[in-house]
């Protein structure tokens, strides 16, 4: 699939470059606007580079945010979402590589939950957590989002492509099921797990509505909730919002850049043989 022709290569490059420019414009604008004062952010025609760069929004951000608490809470949520990812991966493997009674029905159930329109389950879920006495606790915030049918589905699709012979061979060597899962399957699933880690991290990092609703106490708020609190009721403070988003997006980009590398590693087919 390599392009040998120089001309073709430059066409592809140009296409990607133009597209990239178009696609990244709002992102670039978001970052640059976080350094503009309120007047300039919405001036028409808009400016790309700030005329009088200012750090006021960032200063405001760090002064008014209970940064340490929110950050710790956000990391706790990220940590548990990764535990959730492990459970998702196990389930994806279970559905992809095992035959068992009721498999179709259980898988259909999983898929069904993916189709539930998001807002519908909010109040029932809250009531369930309330009955379980889990409101105002980290468990209440974390549990409902732990499992994502989307992720199980995606992982299953991938697991199906792993050759059965490989697993059988390991079993014949006397490896236990969980040993096989952790030592053989997870390394093989690296590309898809890299995607999953990125998605799971972003979801957890930005978690907003549940922490807000479940927490009756600001000590359980996350960074996103803290940022939303900085907003005025009547006047939208765009510069501040841009600074907040920029600040939130940096860790996401770091995670993305680290893990996207692993997407490249695919099957090494000769090794499988």
């Amino acid at each position: 699939m390599e392009l040998k022709n120089r001309f073709e290569r430059s066409i592809v490059n140009t296409l990607l470059f133009m597209g990239g420019l178009l696609v990244s414009l709002p992102f670039v604008w978001m970052i640059l606007s976080s350094f503009k004062n309120e007047r300039e952010v919405l001036s028409i025609p808009p400016t790309l580079f700030p005329n009088e760069p200012t750090f006021e929004h960032y200063i405001n951000l760090f002064q008014n945010l209970n940064f340490d608490i929110y950050l710790v809470n956000t990391f706790i949520i990220v940590f548990f979402s990764m535990v959730g990812l492990l459970l998702n991966t196990m389930a994806g493997y279970g559905f992809g590589k095992f035959q068992f009674r009721g498999k179709e029905i259980w898988f259909a159930t999983v898929l069904l939950t993916m189709m539930i329109p998001g807002q519908v389950t909010m109040i029932p879920t809250y009531l369930i957590l309330n009955e379980a006495g889990l409101t105002n606790s980290m468990a209440g915030i974390v549990l409902p989002g732990l499992i994502a049918a989307f992720n199980i589905f995606l992982i299953r699709q991938f697991m199906v492509t792993i050759p059965d012979d490989l697993i059988e061979a390991a079993r014949l060597d006397g490896a236990g099921e969980f040993y096989i899962f952790f030592k053989l399957i997870i390394p093989l699933a690296k590309p898809i797990l890299a995607v999953q880690i990125i998605l799971t991290f972003i979801g957890a990092w930005n978690s907003f509505l549940w922490p807000l609703i479940i927490a009756n106490d600001e000590s359980l708020y996350t960074l996103s909730v803290g940022l939303a609190l900085l907003q005025d009721q009547n006047v939208t403070n765009y510069g501040l919002q841009m600074a907040g988003s920029t600040f939130m997006v940096v860790p996401v980009l770091i995670i993305f850049i680290i893990f996207q590398k692993h997407i490249v590693e695919g099957f090494n087919v000769s090794g499988i043989k």
Binding site: M122, I123, Y126, L127, N130, T135, N136, L209, L212, I213, N216, D217, E218, V225, A228, L229, Q231, Q233
Partner: peptide, 24 residues
């Protein structure tokens, strides 16, 4: 103990408080 709630989401938050009877 003051708990600030963003305006945009206050309605949702109040709904759940009413539902569970757990309010401030």
């Amino acid at each position: 103990e003051v708990q600030a709630i963003p305006w945009e989401n206050a309605h949702d938050k109040l709904l759940t408080a009413v539902a569970s009877g757990k309010g401030p």
